[in-house]
Computed example of a mutant assay.
Amino acid sequence: MTQAPRPNAAFKPRIFSGIQPSGGLTLGNYLGALKRFVEKQDEGIETIYCLVDLHAITVWQDPDKLRQQTREAAAAFLAAGIDPKRSVLFNQSQVSAHAELGWIFNCVARLGWMNRMTQFKDKVGKNSENASLGLYAYPSLMAADILLYHATMVPVGEDQKQHVELTRDIAAKFNHDFGVDFFPAPEPVIEGAATRVMSLRDGTRKMSKSDPSDASRINLTDDADTIAAKIRKAKTDPEPLPETLDGLKDRPEARNLVNIYAALSGKMPEAVLAEFAGQGFGLFKPVLADIAVATLAPISAEMGRLMADPAEIDRILGEGADRAEPIARPILNRTLDILGMVRRG
């Protein structure tokens, strides 16, 4: 691929990240994304967060469900602690510059780059001929989402790092092809003990809202009793917790629960093992359940309150789009000028 652009020193520090509103959010979304999004608000860097509904329609969506899921995802952001006055929060389709820059980047990205995107292969399996063109090309739209705001940092899970690398390649090629230093090279920000939360039923698979088993995940809409029950029933092994991380090497379910505890408590996994070494899961799970309930039950309750007033959620998203537009539109317009597109004066 193309050599990366020069460092981002000339660009204003700015964070962009997004979540697809394609179903109920889980503990994995909270620990891998929302919790860190909230923390970033306190770091003195502009934060822009987006519900990427254009990405959601790469597979067919029931319109009523898509509206519901978009509002529910917005409620999760707000309930987790995103402040719409300190962060820009909006849904992607309200800012048309995303789609416009996405098309431009379709013409910059190379087929060979797209063919190396592992998530497309994972999602379609052997059924690629029936997949939408949008599902194949969506990484270039993701690059547009990021670069439309000249974002310099992108909080992502480990599984999304490849898409940020593609974004860097697209930025580099555009800059090289037109002899400009216009787009920054955004850095993936991968932090925390549980950036990739695994299934409660299979520690080798990522926790997913699409898993047929509801017991495999903790939904952000679960109440306290449901959260505690799912933790108690989470798959484990008969061995006690070890003293070091090496002792978790071939114990994926145990490692997953330790990482979840660490992320919820703000401790390192090593500190968790130092506290619980030698104890069985009969003692560890109730403590984990308590901290999970204390963290997540208030979010669930606040989401319920917010979802009772969808007009207020729509207002917040609309105001967020009004704040995003003045950032995005000048960057798109300058891109069009660089490309040689004729525009009104």
Rank of each mutant, 00 (worst) to 15 (best):
T2P: 15
P7D: 13
P7Q: 09
N8V: 08
A9C: 02
P13W: 05
F16A: 10
G24R: 11
L31V: 10
K40F: 14
T47W: 03
I48Q: 00
D62P: 07
E72F: 09
A79N: 15
R86D: 13
V88D: 06
Q92M: 11
L101F: 12
G102N: 11
N115L: 12
Q119E: 11
E129G: 10
G134A: 14
S140H: 04
L148N: 00
Y149E: 00
Y149D: 00
H150C: 00
M153L: 12
V156E: 07
T167G: 03
N175E: 13
F182E: 06
P184V: 06
P186C: 12
E187R: 11
V189G: 01
R196V: 12
K206S: 12
K206V: 12
K209W: 06
A215Y: 03
I218E: 00
D223Q: 08
A228C: 05
A228D: 02
E239C: 04
K249D: 15
A254Q: 03
L257W: 04
V258G: 06
V258H: 04
N259I: 01
Y261A: 06
A263W: 00
G266E: 08
A271W: 01
A271D: 15
Q279Y: 05
G280T: 12
F284A: 07
L296E: 01
P298Q: 10
S300R: 07
R305S: 15
D314Y: 09
E319M: 13
R323H: 11
L336P: 00
L336C: 04
G340M: 07
R344H: 02
